[in-house]
């Protein structure tokens, strides 16, 4: 026994949410061949099949690429600070990939350890995430290598599984999920078979041990030469969360804001003295793998990666975490893959 919904009813539900004034987002084809998570103005824009996964991640909706922290005005009497209105509208993210949803509990750790980030937390609370299990994967996917899978439930409020014939089985996983689908589901005898994901491409434990012991290895310069130092991987990654704080304005008024940042930029660790502790691309690439597979696990008990493969697909020169890590792992364990 299961609960199901038809695609048409799902679109109707989405249309209803939009009409209620909620912010609704999901995969859209913004250009032929380019699917991104984007805000929806109509349920017709929602794309449910024909692609592996959107080229961006959901973090934009919880941790925006540009977020104002507060404003300032310099008057004759002094400086006035103005608060920024936090997001009040509820948001619903429809047809997200499990690898996107699973990133959020991972990110919750860093946004709540020594400082509770209210902006992040308030968006998290106001967001309901409905995931759609993956029916297909490509050679950039590696969720199964980091403890996830195409129907992973982590971070999701409700999981949709394809039954075929335009029907989905719906598993409400949290109270938010239940109330979203309340009264919209049909009882059914059909139960979805869980899709199999990509085969495991590496052992995360081997990677973790390698980076711990091989910080100075010639592996890093040899394998990371192609990296051009852009931010495409970090900015499309569901788990990357580094940010830069800037003040923008003029002599009268301005804002303090935070913007996404990437550890691959040459300027990322540049000191005001001119010294850069990560002076070349291999040291920056090494840091990225180290952070994701060793430092974050040591600190928070989670791998900072969900195996979505966006880094590999978006990298203009075909790199990304998978290419480096798979080579690393095979050279570390001595076996050919």
């Amino acid at each position: 026994m299961s609960a199901t919904i038809s695609q048409a009813a799902l679109r109707e539900l989405v249309g209803g949410l939009i009409a209620q004034g909620k912010r609704v987002a999901g995969p859209c084809e913004v250009k032929p061949g380019c699917v991104l998570y984007a805000p929806l103005v109509s349920s017709a824009q929602l794309v449910l099949e024909g692609f592996i996964r959107p080229a961006n991640s959901l973090k934009e909706f919880i941790f925006p690429k540009h977020e104002e922290l507060y404003g300032y005005r310099i008057t004759g009497q002094g400086i006035e600070l103005t608060e920024v209105e936090p997001l009040r509208a509820e948001q619903v993210l429809i047809a997200a990939r499990p690898c996107d949803a699973a990133a959020l509990p991972i990110l919750d750790r860093v946004f709540n350890w020594d400082y509770k980030d209210e902006l992040y937390n308030s968006r998290r609370q106001l967001t309901t995430i409905v995931t759609l299990a993956c029916a297909a994967h490509d050679d950039a996917c590696f969720c199964t290598s980091v403890g996830l899978g195409p129907a992973a439930e982590r971070g999701s409020d409700a999981l949709l599984l394809e039954l075929g014939g335009g029907e989905y089985e719906v598993r409400c996983l949290t109270g938010k999920g239940k109330s979203l689908f309340d009264g919209k589901l049909q009882a059914s005898e059909r139960v979805a078979s869980l899709p199999s994901g990509p085969e495991k491409r590496f052992e995360a434990a081997v990677v973790r041990a390698f980076v711990k012991e091989n910080l100075e290895s010639p592996f890093w310069p040899a394998q990371t030469l192609a990296c051009l130092g852009c931010g495409a991987c970090a900015y499309t990654c569901p788990t990357c969360h580094c940010f830069d704080i800037v003040d923008e304005g003029n002599i009268e008024r301005g804002v303090r804001a935070r913007n996404w940042d990437s550890c691959q930029f040459a300027l990322f660790t540049l000191h005001a003295s001119g010294h850069n502790p990560r002076p070349n691309q291999p040291s920056r690439q090494r840091q990225r793998i180290d952070h994701k597979f060793r430092i974050y696990p040591e600190k928070f008990g989670e791998i900072l990666c969900t195996g979505c493969g966006n880094c590999a697909r978006n990298c203009p020169v075909g790199m990304g975490v998978l290419r480096v890590v798979a080579t690393l792992e095979s050279s570390a364990s001595g076996s050919a893959r």
Partner: peptide
């Protein structure tokens, strides 16, 4: 609106 300032355009 979709630009995230990743500077991939500049780096390539």
């Amino acid at each position: 609106e979709r630009c995230v300032k990743c500077y991939a355009c500049r780096q390539v």
